[in-house]
Design a protein around this nucleic acid. Structure first.
Lengths: 246, 246
DNA sequence: ATGGCGATTATGTATATACATATTGAAACG
DNA sequence: CGTTTCAATATGTATATACATAATCGCCAT
């Protein structure tokens, strides 16, 4: 939780919020350097003329936000500047398209159930061979293609997928509603459109595209691997970042 | 703040923590669907045989984490799942290059101190005019250009930057060591290299590039805006994801 | 009906208080 | 001199209570 998120959730007028922002201001400005021991709760209680609970609420939140570290008997200390980590929002494509005020349409291009090839196993990080479902589809924004999707689903992990046609529902939302995922890994890069992608997205061969690849695990089992390709003009990923311990 | 972050910070043994995890479990599992009105504070007070403050602490945190929405007089409701959030690690370019086993080199191309233009103010989201420092530089991996950097620094926020030549140290690490940041926003997209970028990165004009733009704030003040451009082959962003609400 | 008004209700914030727990520092002891 | 014990201290959690605030419901007058 970032400081501004705290501020956004809490009323900015409340006292514990004011204490919180006063202290974070001192830390952010560098006035209180890393390692500095911030005043004890009872000192802040006196300074703000309020109860310890109120001070405690503010300090607890600063600790949660990672700005300070609290040690019993010793006090609270400004933490070392942390590594950068980000909270990256990845929306459902449908929601993204509709947020642009455009009509969303989904189209299945190909669907193949097969025994996993060596390449499939590499993509899914599967140890043993087994059945997989390979899907290729397109997402439209209005009349224009918005994203191309290539996906592998590990049928050992999601057996019901074999029964689903995926004619009317995209595999993303279908999976989200069915398989809780515990972890995922994304790779984001720029590529030049090859012939196949260029045709699918109705752009020139060689045009820049944003590729987002995702691998998802549920309880340590690989579930799905997907590659989304967006035409450069159509897509920007937005990420809110906050400092965090790393 | 994600649920697991809450759990990590708080002791898992405390009562408000147990209430919190009980409820988030119901929400995550789908037992309490979006829109469902969770029990009132006084009902949970009875169920857990504890005070309202304890229940309130748990519910406030669930609200902060974005799992529920609280409405006075109406109750608390499970929110629609908003998006998937991820923790994306963004490393220093130098570290990234050296992780590839290549020699890192930094080069300053241009440095200009100026009164902020309208464009500068838009990029930095600055209200009033003031002095800014505009920098352009390159990062090398071995002999090849790895990334191109265009940066604005708000001198009202970081006055010492005016004295720094940035001949031997890149502005990124320089800023990180000096200005704690509270929040940043990233935009990631693919573009075709224009002539200037193509020259700087030694690639063909029109070649796909990954652009990462970042705006950073410290204590509500804009600090810096930077645009990194990477040749497509040279860079992949990797993000480890966990489920979360927001 | 309908528009305003007060009562009701759930949450939001703050208080004083109490006891638990972890850690430190110093005194007591072998 | 080293170790154990104990008291002091800051934070962690929980309680009962109080009043503020926002939203909703129903009543009443128009």
């Amino acid at each position: 939780m970032s400081i501004s998120e705290i501020a956004a959730v809490e009323g900015v007028g409340s006292l514990h919020q004011r204490i919180l922002s006063d202290i974070s201001e001192k830390i952010m400005s560098g006035a209180w350097a890393p390692g500095f021991r911030i005043p004890f709760e009872h000192e802040l209680t006196a300074e703000y003329n309020c109860s310890r609970m109120t001070v405690n609420k503010a300090l607890s939140q600063l600790a949660k936000a990672g700005l300070i570290e609290r040690r019993r008997r010793s006090g609270s200390f400004v933490r070392q500047p942390q590594s950068q980590a980000a909270v990256l929002e990845i929306h459902d494509i449908r929601i993204e398209v509709e947020a642009l005020g455009l009509a969303y349409r989904y189209e299945l291009i190909a669907r193949q159930k097969r025994r996993s090839s060596a390449e499939d196993r590499a993509l899914l990080e599967l140890g043993a061979a087994g059945q997989v479902l390979a899907l290729e589809c397109r997402h439209f924004a209005g009349k224009r293609p918005f994203a191309h999707e290539q996906r592998l689903i590990n049928l050992a992990a999601v057996a019901e997928a074999a029964e689903e046609e995926f004619l009317d529902i995209a595999p993303g939302p279908w999976l989200i509603g069915r398989v809780p995922w515990s972890e995922a890994e994304h790779r984001i890069r720029a590529v030049a459109a090859d012939r196949h992608i260029a045709e699918a997205l109705d752009i020139a061969t060689g045009a820049p595209c944003l590729v987002v690849e995702r691998r998802t695990w549920s309880a340590e089992h690989p579930v799905t691997q997907v590659r989304f390709t967006y035409a450069a003009e159509s897509h920007t990923l937005v990420a809110r970042f906050r400092p965090s311990q790393g």
